[in-house]
Design a binder for these strands. Structure first.
Lengths: 340, 340
DNA sequence: CTGTTAGCGCGTTCAC
DNA sequence: GTGAACGCGCTAACAG
């Protein structure tokens, strides 16, 4: 069924049906009512593919995250979706699995759908991707970190500074033998940025970094057992394990519970992100609070702003919004050291 | 940039460019190579909106889940995506927030994109939705439960039977004062189905159901504290709290730890779903194992099968795949009762 | 306020 | 193996 068919039934033109379907167009109230009624009765559903081709507005925004199976990214995506939905922008969601080549493939595929904006979770992009994005003249927002050389807009925070701040706080609290446990990643990933932040904080007080890693990203709670093995083997005198993320921290804490290692008395643990589990678990997990939802919401606002062509003065002005990233001390690594 | 532009550059017709871009079409190898090279150099990206309109194949499949912020549904969606991606089917993902009206709105919006299949997480649908889906002649797969009156295809399991099986196992293990904690939901939801399964199992051994609920779906780990309050107030003699899902079970277990209530000695706890947290937490959580990823994978296979028009004999034959749902006993409610 | 005309950028179909 | 004509279903732009 096409608009034609709806129009014929009412003895009007397809154009009037088209207009009646959008709020911002001029149609006689009675006509609009009749059209909507006919559409309802017929169960007509407009073909938005044809509409998009004609209007050159796809109604899509694309978002790429490393993993959807990570509650933090899914919170961001949900908040972004919630911001765009009222404006009838449909998200195209892609999961890169922390793989740069896969990201490149997804960007190509998404660009073919002519999204009105594209949101990337910064992880270091392939040169192809950057070139294609430039040619496509599509607004780009990078989220979840502050890239050294942003493509356009940014909503995030410095993962390096955030982890550095947490470690500095813990050092001031008196912890010394702090071992970092992260992921195997040498690229410009958020995990690597956090590791660098840890190293800097340690070096600034004259301590050598103590690094461990077994997991390819993402490190999950299931990696906790092996991570604890690794830490105890390489750095048996560890006072505190600083983890790249909360799920891993929880996994290590659970492994400690199974082995009768008391947290924080025998081993303190910190995470990153302030996931729900960090607040709920007993003890709570010392971490860095990131408001994942606000990243999505702010990104949504930027995307919506970009839909209406900017005033000439604002053309090409890159937005960079920073979200807070504050240490939160909880029972897993309290501000008063109790490690004996 | 259009195909026209690529074609002109090579002195060929747009049609040949179009053919060179798909593997199943007949082009001279040398021509194809030249076309791909030109496309690469120019950074040309085909307009799939135009392509979809002409070919009447959108390359979309739609999936609706109650919540993406639930690791189980996100696992299903990820597995579905993984199955479809190699075939260049892009998922349109919608989150209904457990709201039937919102579901109806999303179905309308998705149908306008002409998806080649639509996947619903059964929750009882509005009549409008069922009618529209019928008219659209779009393949429908309902997942995560066994609807009383399926629309078409189904991939799932009986939530009622699964919970009934777990409770029956726990009753056989010797637990008697089992209190159920679920969500406020009177509709045909999975939560309600699980509650009914609990009630049946209790009644079959002559026990009265003991029901508690404070949370609207989804019950999360953060609801644990209030849930424990509720249980202890209404049924202070509870031996075991049977939860509608693992995150809630974990939340209650953490609340017990904070209050010095020993699990399972003073209070046993069970969940549902076998989420990662049920395996990792200490103690592990007794639950029902559901392979969320296999639901997504099987759904993907069905969707792919439906893309190639079926043989006349198979037309209209509804597929119903059942996935296993087995009780798993862990430390939070072991097979040997220790509640004193 | 409404209708007409003319594409949007491809793929289908048929020639050759 | 390649090209030309046509249409997919809708909306922009203009006319009235």
């Amino acid at each position: 069924m096409r608009m034609q068919d709806v129009a014929k039934r009412l003895g009007i033109s397809a154009m009037t049906v088209s207009r009646a379907l959008r709020a911002d167009t001029t149609v006689a109230p009675a006509t609009r009512e009749a059209v909507l009624k006919a559409i309802e009765e017929l169960g007509y559903v407009p073909n938005q593919i044809a509409g998009s081709l004609a209007s050159r507005r796809s109604g899509f925004a694309a978002v790429l995250v490393p993993s959807l199976n990570n509650s933090h990214f899914s919170e961001t995506v949900l908040a972004l979706n919630a911001a765009l939905e009222p404006h009838h922008i449909q998200l195209l969601i892609g999961s890169t699995d922390y793989d740069r080549e896969k990201e490149a493939g997804l960007v190509r595929a998404f660009l073919a759908r002519k999204p009105e904006a594209i949101v990337l979770t910064n992880d270091g992009h392939s040169p192809d991707v950057v070139r294609l994005l430039g040619q496509a003249r599509v607004p780009v927002v990078q989220i979840w970190d502050l890239p050294a050389r942003p493509i356009q807009h940014v909503v995030g925070f410095s993962n390096r500074e955030a982890m550095k701040g947490l470690i500095a706080t813990l050092l001031r609290a008196g912890y010394r033998r702090i071992t970092y446990f992260g992921e195997l990643d040498d690229d410009e990933t958020r995990g690597a940025a956090r590791r660098h932040g840890y190293c800097e904080a340690m070096r600034e007080v004259g301590l050598s970094p103590r690094l461990c890693a077994i997991a390819r990203p993402p490190a999950t709670m299931s990696d906790g057992e092996r991570a604890l093995d690794e830490v105890l083997q390489h750095y048996p005198d560890t006072e505190l394990v600083a983890c790249v993320s909360d799920p891993l921290a929880f996994g290590i804490m659970a492994a400690c519970a199974r082995r009768g290692i008391s947290v924080p008395d025998q081993l303190a643990i910190s995470g990153f992100g302030d996931f729900e589990i960090a607040r709920v678990s007993a003890p709570g997990i010392t971490t860095v609070r990131i408001d994942a939802a606000s990243i999505g919401r702010l990104t949504g606002e930027i995307v919506l702003d970009l839909l209406v062509p900017a005033a000439p003065a604002q053309q090409g002005v890159a937005i960079c919004e920073t979200v807070p990233a504050e240490p939160v001390l909880r029972g897993s690594a309290p501000g008063t050291v109790s490690v004996g």
